[in-house]
Nucleic acid binder design. Structure first.
Lengths: 122, 122, 122, 122
DNA sequence: GTGGTCTAGACCACA
DNA sequence: GTGGTCTAGACCACG
């Protein structure tokens, strides 16, 4: 699991990190129970501030993606059926609208989504 | 075409407006050539500032969703096959990962996407 | 001499008209003494407001490109060595800087300028 | 890098600032990677509003001249061959036509352009 | 009456 | 301390 950052992006660094962890879990690169790097380690190796890493970890914890284990530090949470947040659905609605307005048919859009989902299964 | 804002959301107002216009175009509630409310009118009826509306309009213009005719104000741009931006794909990858980690199967995810796309066709 | 307008441009219509007349004179499509269409005629055939045409004509007159002849209406002024305005030089400096920053060498920039100048001699 | 504004000019302040930055980059007074003054600092020292500076910076960012690094603020973008915009060429055509109508020969015009380009190389 | 520009403040998210 | 966002006004260019 490698993390990388685009310092010019308009997405905050802590959110970029959070997104990479979520994608990593989906792709199976991060397995339930697997230990995440310590805040200090991750901050040092990627050149970002410890507070930024901390903020990302806190968010991920709150969203249920990771949890703090007393013995082994921060680990990936066991998979469990979670609720789909309203924000996720709303974000999806916006992005799918963008694709639709760009001229993609329903079939084409579903093909894109299937491809992206399967990327997640790799 | 009605607009509404969530003043508690962490999504900036101008982006909320931009998103509603994009969704409106996808849903056919805003037709190509149709005139959008003037900046002042929209600002007044929705209780947000003129410059905030202006910012949203400028973003939409830059993205090719609308254009301002020097004679007739701001109108919805004619539909044309556009390029899919890298950001759209990246955002989609993140959201689909969230769904996947929440335990949704490929089939279920595609069902959600189809439903949302068809909402756009209404 | 045909005029055409881009109603979506950020250049005002009266300035677009003014520019087309200047280019037309440079290209020899408008000869000294040649009569320009009346304000009303030009406005009607091109679908813009009479006030807009009037504003362009007034600007062109003030800049010495055209003059009002008592007998024949508005005509192209006789060519004469004019002063180069400070704004022209400043505008040129900005545009040449843009080309330079885009990576064009002095030779390439001069080639572009020569080509554009010779277009004017057609 | 000093900035100065002509408050009587009909060129908007944000555009005057944008132009000065472009010229500064061309002249090598602003080097790739060099940090630009913060929005607040520039606004204060030049007596214009923060939002006006912000608007100029956003335009420059969009045009690829500068970029904002989430850690180190706003810096000059690394030079790279860019595309020449259609507007630049059109603007050049207008200005060269003005020179031509003023009576400058091709040789004289190219001399002017060479001089201005080399000013940029200083 | 339209959009564009600008001001002088304020608050917040980010790092 | 940085840029991003927002407000409530104002003035102007354009058509």
């Amino acid at each position: 699991m490698l993390v990388s950052f685009d310092f010019q992006s308009d997405i905050p660094l802590y959110m970029q990190l959070r997104n990479q962890v979520v994608i990593g879990i989906a792709q199976g690169k991060l397995l339930p129970g697997e230990q995440l790097p310590t805040i200090r380690a991750l901050a040092e190796e990627s050149g970002i501030n410890m507070m930024t890493v901390s903020k990302a970890y806190q968010l991920l914890k709150q969203e249920g993606y990771i949890l703090t284990d007393r013995r082994s530090g921060t680990v990936v949470a066991p998979r469990q059926k979670g609720v789909i947040s309203e924000e996720t659905i709303h974000g999806l609605r916006v992005l799918l609208s963008e694709l639709q307005v760009s001229g993609l048919s329903e079939k084409e859009v579903l093909t894109v989504c299937r491809k992206l989902y399967q990327e997640g299964t790799k």
